[in-house]
Design a protein around this nucleic acid. Structure first.
Lengths: 203, 203
DNA sequence: CTTCGAAGTAATCATTCAATAACCACATAA
DNA sequence: TTATGTGGTTATTGAATGATTACTTCGAAG
C-alpha cells in the first residue's frame, strides 16, 4: 500500500492554483520577510505540497519577485481606479484606498520587506524600480508636486511601519500607541483594528 | 602540528570585543535583516570565529535584541544631546541628527527590519516597545504635539525606506530618484551619497 | 475504453546554519 | 614557574530548507 494518495480534494487549473499560491505567499512573505518565509509555510498556507510551489515558480526568489510585482500592480491599479473617479481631494482619497489595501493580507508588508533589501542585486533592483513606479505615478499621472508626493509617501511608510509593528495590538494597553494610531489614521482606524483582531484569531 | 592557531593577533577585553561584535552585527543585520543575516557573516565581519559570537550572546535572537536595544539607546541619547543644546527649531535639528546616524552603519536599518517583524513574539514585542519609547520621547521630553510627532516619524520612516532601498544608487541614473532624494533630504544629501559610495567600494 | 497531458505528490538530497563540545593560548599573580 | 581563568579556536552535529527526481492520478479527447 505504498502510495495512499491523500488530498484527492480539489484539482484546479494551473492559473487559478498559481494565483492562490501567490496570495498565500504574499501573506507569508508579509509576515516573515523574504529570508524568514519558507516555501513549506507558503505551500501549507496554499494547501499544496512544497515541491509544487518551487516547481511552479522555479525558485523562491522568483516567487518573491512575482509577489512584489503583483503587489505593485495592484497598488497602481487601485490608484488609477481612484483617479478615474475624479481629481478632487486626491491625497485623502489615495490615503483611504491605501489603507483599504490592508485587506489584501501581506501585500503592503511584502513590499515593505523588499524595500529594506535594497542591497540584494535582484530583489533590491526590482524594489527600487517598483518604488519609483509609484513615485512616477504620483508625479506624472496624479499630478502631484514633489513635496506633495513626498508627503504622501511619508504617510504611507509610517502606515506600513505601524502595521508591520502590529501596533494595533497595543491599542488598548498603551495610551501612547492609542494616540499614535488615532493621529496617524484619522479615518479607517476601525479597519486596522478589525484586521488585527482577525489576525489574532487566525493565528 | 595539529592546531596551527591563526589570528594570534589581537586579544581584547571581553567588553571591547562585545562592542565590536555588536557593531558588526548591526551592519550585517541592517543589510540582510534578522533571518537573512547569519552568525557566520557577523563573525567574519568582526574578525572572530562564529562559535564565539553565539557563545557571547547565547543565541542569534538575543544578539539581535541587543543590537536593536543598542540602536535605540543611541538614538535617544543623540536626541537628548540635541535637546540639551536648545529647544528651538527642534524638528529640523532632530532631522539632521537622525540623518547623521546613517554614519553608524546599519543602525537605522536594523531597527527598520525589526519594525516589520511585529508578528514575532519576542522581536516584535521589543520593536513595538522601542518605537513607542521614541514616540514617548518626542511627546513628553521634546514637547511635540501628536501631529508634530507623527510628522517627524513619517519623515523618518521614509528616510529609512529610501536608505534601505539604496535609492542613492539611482541618483545619477534616474531623474525621478534624483528629484525624490533632493526633496526628501533638503540638507544632508551629500552625506547619503557619500555613504552610498563608501558602501559600493567596501562591498 | 484507452491514451496522454496536465496537475499534483512522496521521497530524498545537498547545503546551510545555529548551536555545542572540546580544546588551546596567553596573561597574570602566587 | 607553575596554576588558573579569560579570551579565544577548531571540529562537529542536528535540524531546517530549497531544490530535484520520480512517481501518481485525474480528466478529457479520440
Amino acid at each position: 500500500m505504498h502510495h495512499e494518495f491523500h488530498h484527492p480534494v480539489s484539482r484546479m487549473k494551473s492559473e487559478d492554483r498559481r494565483e492562490l499560491i501567490l496570495e498565500s505567499a504574499t501573506g507569508v512573505f508579509g509576515q516573515f520577510g523574504y529570508y524568514g518565509a519558507t516555501t513549506d509555510q507558503i505551500a501549507k498556507a496554499a494547501g499544496v505540497s512544497q515541491p509544487y510551489v518551487v516547481r511552479m515558480f522555479g525558485t523562491k526568489e522568483r516567487l518573491f519577485i512575482e509577489v512584489i510585482e503583483r503587489a505593485l500592480a495592484f497598488i497602481l491599479m487601485t490608484f488609477r481606479a481612484v483617479l478615474a473617479e475624479g481629481h478632487h481631494d486626491l491625497q485623502h482619497r489615495f490615503g483611504s484606498a491605501y489603507v483599504e489595501m490592508l485587506r489584501q493580507r501581506g501585500l503592503l508588508l511584502s513590499l515593505m520587506h523588499s524595500f529594506v533589501l535594497g542591497g540584494d542585486p535582484v530583489v533590491g533592483a526590482r524594489a527600487r524600480e517598483g518604488f519609483l513606479e509609484v513615485y512616477a505615478f504620483l508625479r506624472h499621472e496624479a499630478g502631484f508636486g514633489p513635496e506633495e508626493a513626498q508627503q504622501f509617501l511619508e504617510g504611507g511608510m509610517l502606515l506600513n511601519t505601524l502595521v508591520g509593528l502590529r501596533m494595533s495590538e497595543e491599542f488598548e494597553t498603551s495610551p501612547l500607541a492609542n494616540e499614535l494610531l488615532c493621529t496617524a489614521l484619522p479615518h479607517k482606524l476601525d479597519l486596522l483594528l478589525e484586521l488585527g483582531e482577525a489576525q489574532r484569531l487566525g493565528t
